[in-house]
Design a protein around this nucleic acid. Sequence first.
DNA 1: GATGAATGAGTCTTCATTCAT
DNA 2: AATGAATGAAGACTCATTCAT
Lengths: 217, 217, 217, 217
Amino acid sequence: MSAKSDPSGGAPDAPPTDTQRRILAAALDLFADRGYAATSTAAIASRAAVAEKTIFANFTSKERLFDQILQPAVLDLLLPRALGGVRETLAKPWTSLPAFLGALMRNRMEFVRDNPAKLKLIAQAVILHPEIFARFAAIFREQLEPRVESLLAELEARGELRAIPRASLMRIVLSVTAGYMLARFVLRPGSEWDDEAELATMIDVLVNGLKPSAREP
Amino acid sequence: MSAKSDPSGGAPDAPPTDTQRRILAAALDLFADRGYAATSTAAIASRAAVAEKTIFANFTSKERLFDQILQPAVLDLLLPRALGGVRETLAKPWTSLPAFLGALMRNRMEFVRDNPAKLKLIAQAVILHPEIFARFAAIFREQLEPRVESLLAELEARGELRAIPRASLMRIVLSVTAGYMLARFVLRPGSEWDDEAELATMIDVLVNGLKPSAREP
Amino acid sequence: MSAKSDPSGGAPDAPPTDTQRRILAAALDLFADRGYAATSTAAIASRAAVAEKTIFANFTSKERLFDQILQPAVLDLLLPRALGGVRETLAKPWTSLPAFLGALMRNRMEFVRDNPAKLKLIAQAVILHPEIFARFAAIFREQLEPRVESLLAELEARGELRAIPRASLMRIVLSVTAGYMLARFVLRPGSEWDDEAELATMIDVLVNGLKPSAREP
Amino acid sequence: MSAKSDPSGGAPDAPPTDTQRRILAAALDLFADRGYAATSTAAIASRAAVAEKTIFANFTSKERLFDQILQPAVLDLLLPRALGGVRETLAKPWTSLPAFLGALMRNRMEFVRDNPAKLKLIAQAVILHPEIFARFAAIFREQLEPRVESLLAELEARGELRAIPRASLMRIVLSVTAGYMLARFVLRPGSEWDDEAELATMIDVLVNGLKPSAREP
DNA sequence: GATGAATGAGTCTTCATTCAT
DNA sequence: AATGAATGAAGACTCATTCAT
């Protein structure tokens, strides 16, 4: 028997072929635009300019194709590989909360600006499938939480943070950030936005909101 | 003239029949759970215990059925009809920002606690179809913004608000609120949540974040 | 038990009620326009301005409704009840073939002019269901053929008819007549037609074509 | 570019595949027998022994499938491609009206004898959709009328034709011919028919009916 | 006598997926 | 490695018909 072409087998992280890249790009756009269920494999094939069968030859099933798009997208958003990403941001010796928030938001904004479809895709997936959220929350806990925790501890020690449950604190920061990104890139992408001013405002509000109140010196 | 049963015609707000209520309830649950595209009319019919045709006899098409669920859901969320709703909250002579935020969040939390499916539905719809968001943003602007504006003006006059663009301010408050609701009722509905503590934290952060900073007295 | 309303029972030829007339008229138009299979009972009900159920209350089934339209239409075309109809035409002591053909064609033309939908309906029915044609051919044979036969015999005796098989002769006359009516009222109803000239031409051709040829005096 | 199988695109007259031929044959039979609306794509698929989807993969929609059957059928009837077809008949230097009519009728009779379903299909289509008739009348006018015209002119010059409007003349000849074919192959296909005798009779009647009458020598 | 509301079986069409090449 | 052609199951939606009123 000839060696079967075994998709998704072999080297688990072989770089995608050109065909695969075209399919992944087409699928990302369509999934993000219409949602998973409303996107037909025929539409993906047509946009990628390949035969429908080629999709299945390379990704086995529509669902696996989706996973192979979603997973990297989430990792990119949480654990970017590029220099200056979140881990690098977290690793730097931040001297102040506003500096840290600014670096974090700016960095993630750049990513989303270049990949709005990924944000849209993740937002949909997470709302429809909370178990996906759980999976990626676990990644966050394992990979990022310790660093975040030590950073917060240091900031707290410096008197820049009030005593707030960590989970609530992080959720609030995330909400404000994600809220802006969604409005900016998904809900009203056509409007005019002054990113710098908005960032400054958000950082200002968060820094003031999170610092110890005047009464508890 | 024949008195055909004329779905969606006639009196535009005739109270729904029992059959219609069953269909609407089934469809809301399924649309929220699986998304519009992944929900078949057959599944709705089966859950509502009616014939599939009955759905079309009453709502003309799947899309119109969806609209007849989404529209009231959004209105309920934005402009609740029940006493103590947003408009009443806005109308009261609030003496302080924390009191106002607390009333607002608590009121909307109760609504979402009773109708998590509506939140889930709206979140999906708004991400997939920004034009829907635009439609409802318009409702907000027309119905609520003036009251919010005057309220904020008053709070500002009392020294409880920093000079922040209104849109940014409202987006931040909304982000924090919606972020909590999504986490609480959509992403991790099974976890234990201490609503009172979370509310207190959010209000605290927002109030401090929004009040004039110590340096600008 | 109460007396059931027994549609199509009771007096077999009770005059139709107003409701029934409306339904029959609507159904005739739609059947003629779109064909039997493409006409829904819903469309008939809507055009007749009655509830769909009323159709079934009065005519039992779509098929019976169709029959109750087709049957009279055929009888009207073959055996008109009005004065001056085919039987009267046949009964008169015709002195010549052209006079007879002229009277016949003119009379049937008037009928079709007033009832083009009936011709269209019959044409469709007869092509799709030859057994219907057979049924009505039988009516013709029983009711009309004897008279036609004696008329033809007389014309033959007078030297106006060649010796041609009766069936062929009648088919040719019918073909020419029906061909004109179809073109005139079904295929190109919008065009301008000079009925008198066309009739004259057809009669002329038929009379010459059917009379004994010069060589056989 | 992807090489999608592009139904009805690409080379517009690519020879049909075997699958397509089976579908076309099945559809022709069923459409002719039951009419377009009463023929389900499921029935066609079952008779052609293919999956229903295969029909749509090859013909896009039921309506286009119908068109791809009707159009060639009409062209075959009007403009046969085979040798000895209408155009060849028209091209020959006919020495007499009876010879011409005989050749024409015989030729078209053979075609219909081999393809009665096509005649049935065309008859239905033309009655239900006069605009289809108009389309094909145009083809006739463009492709055949000039030749017919010159032929008739020549016959007229030879004294074989009376001065009759061309349109009426052609309609009468067509009516007689089509009338026979319908009776012969559609209405009473089971009966015994003596084609030669019938043809002779029709030609005789037409020739005598169309030649200058004795009185106008 | 007529209806409003409902239905199971069926409509055309599309789905994700597979086989032979 | 990619495809063209095919498919069974399912999609939204319509059909002729019936029940309770």
